[in-house]
Design a protein around this nucleic acid. Structure first.
Lengths: 328, 328
DNA sequence: CTGAAAGCGCTTACAG
DNA sequence: CTGAAAGCGCTTACAG
């Protein structure tokens, strides 16, 4: 592989000069520049990114930590991030945590070892203190996740408001016994969705019944199991709100398995508006989460940090609308 | 940030020695080692990966080029790759090409610039010659894609055989007019699926009717449009085989929109066995492609190349079985 | 406008 | 078992 020195020799200049044309910095005589360019072409020269990185103390790499890339929600999120990153001269290192706190910390160490310039987190599985200690090595941005004290910048939707909308929609349709299937409770956005659900019931002076509130794992199977449990209650719910679309699909399957109809016997609402919501029969009423945009904005935010912007505690909130289809 | 020199000073040794304990190479007096370890701990030292990379001329990074990470098929594929990579001390750089040949070449340049040690490609959108010219800079492995001359190692399924199985299954169910909706024809695996379809028709001496063969883009909408076209024929097909599950979902929607039933009026088969195949009603008969395993094997193959194995032209073929459900 | 020199933070023969 | 020295391939003040 030719190095910068080979180019310099071939062009009859010093490597400083080659470097200048490489980085387009400093004044270079146009004629000299042509000679250098010609030499580079002739040798088929490509600068070593690693050497440049060591010198400049940057990597142009961003670590993106997500629970599971085979989940379409995270797929869209990462897609948004990647497009922005490439446009700005960065690349994305994909880090599947499998929700494992240990692996999350291992990936965070990439920041410390100067393997990446910054990190985007989609879920916080470790004490905030510990995560924050990595900030000395580079910026960290949260997406679809945030911390109450705003000590880390975040890009989110208003999950409380979204869940309120869903609940109000069901109430206005005449439902009073509304089941709720939440995701894992350690996730703040799940707690928010539950808050919104409860808040809106209270707004309409509907008593909150705790046997109607269940909790699962964001999978079809999980939603199915919770729905069976809810449908086995003395006083069955006439509507079920699941905290994501996959679980809502499981709910529909459980309802139909009991010989009941959606929405006539049980109305169902999901959350996210991923592809399955338009495939399942009946099509799912859901919250249209701007997944791709969440990815875009989070990467833009991170890169603006890297460019020197200070935005401790900045929180960007995107709009998420209710998308009414056949299941309610 | 502390460097190796800071550690050396604190421990009262040379940086060579620190480096030796860092890399666990060469003989180091146990006592000296303890001193060094203690100094590292005290300074909270982490070696710079970039400096090590420059010196060792490796990056421990793999570029994975895929058309679109928000597609669950590629999500599962990448998940398999990432797990293997991390286990072996590598990280994955995610490269979304959007099927754009120009972007594909740009990403390939990462190999030349020594930003990555190797590349995995899921689709070849550029002349083989050009892609092969990058081999001088590092290994390239294909997955779910291959080249006829085996000049690049590949991990695949036997798409001809799989399509034959599908077609035979339909024939044995009594179907004689079987529509086929293929993916983009420039993709070799699509050409193979079509070959299998035609081959099996010929085996059973069923004439191949070219108005029954259509071609689309692997999306639900694309499958829907092709199905409408097929269903508008004078002699309608009694079964439709789509080259992936998304298009098969579109087929089911088109059939049902016409007031026809699946499978009684039109049987439908997909390909891949992704999540939607179990959500759509009726559940889809499909080819169960070992997606995650394709990812695993391709990364293992690439890393074995990096470890020095020579495997030009190696082709690994995984099993893919027919998964019969309600749509046939 | 251009070059000589130092330095980014490691690793690795080579001596001892 | 340990250290001094060279070097990976760039970039960047500093002189001129």
């Amino acid at each position: 592989m030719p190095t910068i020195l080979d180019v310099a020799e071939k062009a009859g200049v010093s490597r400083s000069t080659v470097s200048r044309v490489l980085t387009n910095s400093g004044r270079v005589d146009p004629e000299t520049k042509q000679k250098v360019l010609a030499a580079m072409k002739e040798l088929n020269y490509q600068p070593s990114q690693v050497a440049r990185n060591l010198r400049r103390k940057e990597t142009n790499l961003i670590a993106v930590l997500i629970p599971c890339i085979s989940n379409p929600f995270f797929g869209s999120l990462v897609q948004g991030m990647e497009e922005v990153a490439v446009k700005k001269g960065y690349h994305v290192i994909l880090c599947n945590t499998g929700e494992d706190p240990v692996r999350q910390m291992e990936y965070l160490q990439m920041l410390e070892r100067k393997q990446v310039d910054g990190v985007i987190l989609t879920s916080l599985r470790n004490p905030l203190e510990e995560v924050r200690s990595y900030l000395q090595h580079g910026p960290i941005v949260l997406v679809s996740e945030y911390v109450e004290d705003n000590s880390l910048p975040a890009v989110v939707i208003d999950n409380i408001k979204a869940a309120e909308r869903v609940t109000e929609h069901l109430i206005l349709k005449g439902h009073k016994r509304i089941g709720f299937i939440n995701g894992p409770e350690h996730i703040i956005l799940c707690r928010d969705r539950q808050k919104g659900y409860i808040q809106m019931l209270e707004n309409y002076e509907i008593s909150v019944s705790h046997d109607l509130i269940t909790c699962s794992d964001f999978t079809i199977e999980g939603g199915f199991a919770c729905a069976k449990q809810l449908l086995a209650l003395e006083e069955k719910p006439s509507a079920i709100f699941a905290a994501n679309d996959e679980m809502a699909v499981g709910v529909i399957q459980a309802v139909q398995e009991q010989g009941l109809r959606v929405p006539q016997d049980v109305a169902v609402v999901g959350f996210d508006n991923v592809q399955v919501s338009k495939v399942v029969q009946p099509n799912l009423t859901t919250i249209d989460q701007p997944i791709f945009q969440l990815g875009v904005k989070s990467m833009e935010l991170l890169i603006s940090c890297l460019d020197g912007d200070v935005l401790e505690g900045k929180r960007i909130v995107l709009e998420a609308n209710l998308c009414i289809r056949e299941s309610t």
